[in-house]
């Protein structure tokens, strides 16, 4: 054992590309699966959620307007950086989730690969979901998928890294920006991921990460009028109906969660990409 005392990390929120503490000044203890102290995490408040939505909205124009090629490169860069910090994520995931190192390794590897999978989708989605519409008239009509806007994401509670990546990457791959409320009890990999995002090429505000009590924060996200869609992946089952109901006030798109958290190691399909895009149909006459 080294006799040098290690420098402990302070875990903060990630909003608009910066790492603020909660405006509430609150923090909470994050423990490992055996109940040992891991760290203090910022306990975000509704005002932090509000700030995160503002940041996400501000970032939306630029991110949705970026070329799909550029978004693909940015997502791929995240995978690169994650790979570089693989060991750190394995350790944190193992600690957070109480899994063996070997399983943590495969989980982190899957998370890295997931970024690569979604990075490759950015410039395919319009081809696959878009269409040229053969309308019965002298018009050129085409449909393209466009990002829905600001998506509120309740990250999975159990799978602190792979689950998180599996829900955030598809949201931003199509050009949305995200406000993520992390796993309440396992927030540390998310915060470390935010450090990766901050040093990658993901523009500030595209992903905003708030740690804290899900039950406290989720209703504010669900009812926020400037949030366009809601991913209930990590919503407590008892709250899902209430959150979906709150989302109805501004006709948000809601991606519901299955009763139990899915196996995130399974190969994803397009459904999460489809969930947060809008089809836009454009018509123009054809004439001389």
């Amino acid at each position: 054992m080294s006799d040098r005392l290690s420098v402990a990390k302070t875990y903060k929120l990630y909003i608009g590309g910066a790492f603020p503490r909660s405006e509430s000044g609150r923090s909470y203890v994050v423990r490992d699966s055996k109940g040992g102290f891991l760290a203090n995490a910022a306990q975000g408040s509704r005002k932090d959620v509000r700030e995160a939505v503002v940041a996400a909205r501000k970032a939306f124009g630029g991110w949705s307007g970026a070329t799909a090629y550029n978004r693909g490169q940015v997502l791929y860069r995240v995978a690169e950086l994650l790979e570089g910090r693989r060991e750190q994520f394995i350790a944190e995931t193992a600690a957070s989730e109480g899994i063996a190192t070997k399983k943590a390794q495969s989980t982190v590897d899957a998370a890295i690969d997931r970024w690569v999978w979604y990075a490759g989708w950015t410039d395919k989605i319009a081809t696959v979901l878009g269409a040229s519409n053969p309308v019965a008239g002298p018009y050129f009509s085409f449909s393209v998928p466009e990002p829905t806007g600001v998506v509120g994401v309740l990250a999975p509670q159990a799978s602190s890294l792979l689950g998180l990546v599996s829900v955030v990457a598809p949201v931003i791959a199509t050009g949305n920006t995200a406000v993520v409320i992390t796993s309440q009890d396992r927030p540390l990999p998310a915060i470390t991921l935010s450090e990766v995002l901050a040093t990658s090429d993901v523009p500030g505000g595209v992903v905003n990460i708030v740690t804290g009590r899900t039950a406290e924060l989720a209703p504010w996200l669900a009812s926020h009028a400037d949030v366009n869609a809601l991913d209930l992946a990590g919503a407590p089952e008892s709250m899902r109906a209430e959150l979906e109901g709150a989302a109805a006030d501004t006709v948000k798109r809601v991606l519901r969660a299955r009763a139990t958290e899915p196996d995130w190691t399974a190969q994803p399909d397009m459904s999460r990409l489809r969930a947060f895009v809008e089809s836009k149909t454009v018509w123009h006459p054809m004439g001389v």
């Binding site: 002298p138 018009y139 006459p285 054809m286 004439g287 001389v288």
Partner: peptide, 13 residues
Amino acid sequence: LHGLPGVDQVGVE
């Protein structure tokens, strides 16, 4: 003459 508003063929037909 070139500054006159255009005529959209489909629209006028």
